[in-house]
Design a protein around this nucleic acid. Structure first.
Lengths: 120, 120
DNA sequence: GCTTGACTTGGAGTGGCTCCAGACGGGTAG
DNA sequence: CTACCCGTCTGGAGCCACTCCAAGTCAAGC
């Protein structure tokens, strides 16, 4: 499939996909005789995973490392697991931040309720 | 208090505080006779709020708007409330994304458990 | 009086895209 | 056949929100 379809399915923009390919985070995609990229379902699966990792704050560097491990085959699975576990920890920390911020917002909003028309 | 203390208390770096002041998101801070910034507790409270809003993804533009409303005094409280409510919605959406990603990670990790030593 | 350290400014650099100009090639319309 | 539109290509500029740095000022301590 071509880039627009891969983009729709993965969630990444066509520009971002090209950018990822350039930076090696995505393997060089096969090209048709016309020179256009031809994405396989596996490519799209990979892009989709990247979409989620990136969206939830994994840095490029780490994604590059992860991609490299993937290229190196099965014997890197333990390390890949540890990358994902680390990210999972990050997600938890992030959720706590969001919760903390939600509390602060609630507090602020309640304060506004009380003030409404009073002093600042 | 000086910038280093304000930085510690708010969580923002000194550079970021100066940057925020330059961009108007923070009111011009009082200067002592030595030309150094002299932060009041209210300044720090404001910085702390900004820290949380920014950290949880509120764009600068919106924070600028919020700062402007704040400057305009109490009659803008309803609009300030709606800014915070909108952000609160954003937090919820963000939390769902994190959860979705956590699911995907769990799925991947489980797949790795099964593969461990088998085929890629 | 000299060093140390916190602060100042302006400006350059960074990460991760995002947008754009200009070129190409395939398909439909006139 | 020509005109035009689409989607794609590449390389490069632009953007956001910092972050870091150089060069300078000043105050306090030895």
């Amino acid at each position: 499939m071509r880039i627009s379809e891969a983009s729709m399915k993965s969630g990444l923009s066509a520009d971002t996909i090209r950018y990822y390919e350039k930076s090696g985070i995505v393997p060089a995609i096969d090209r048709g005789p016309d020179g256009l990229r031809n994405f396989s379902p596996e490519n799209v699966e990979w892009l989709t995973l990247l979409y989620w990792l990136r969206k939830t704050g994994m840095p490029m560097k780490e994604m590059c490392r992860f991609a490299e491990l993937y290229r190196l085959g099965n014997r890197t699975i333990p390390e890949r697991k540890s990358v994902l576990l680390r990210h999972s920890e990050r997600l938890k920390a992030r959720q706590q931040e969001l919760e903390r911020c939600a509390e602060i917002l609630d507090y602020k909003l309640a304060a506004y309720e009380n003030i409404e028309g009073g002093k600042q």
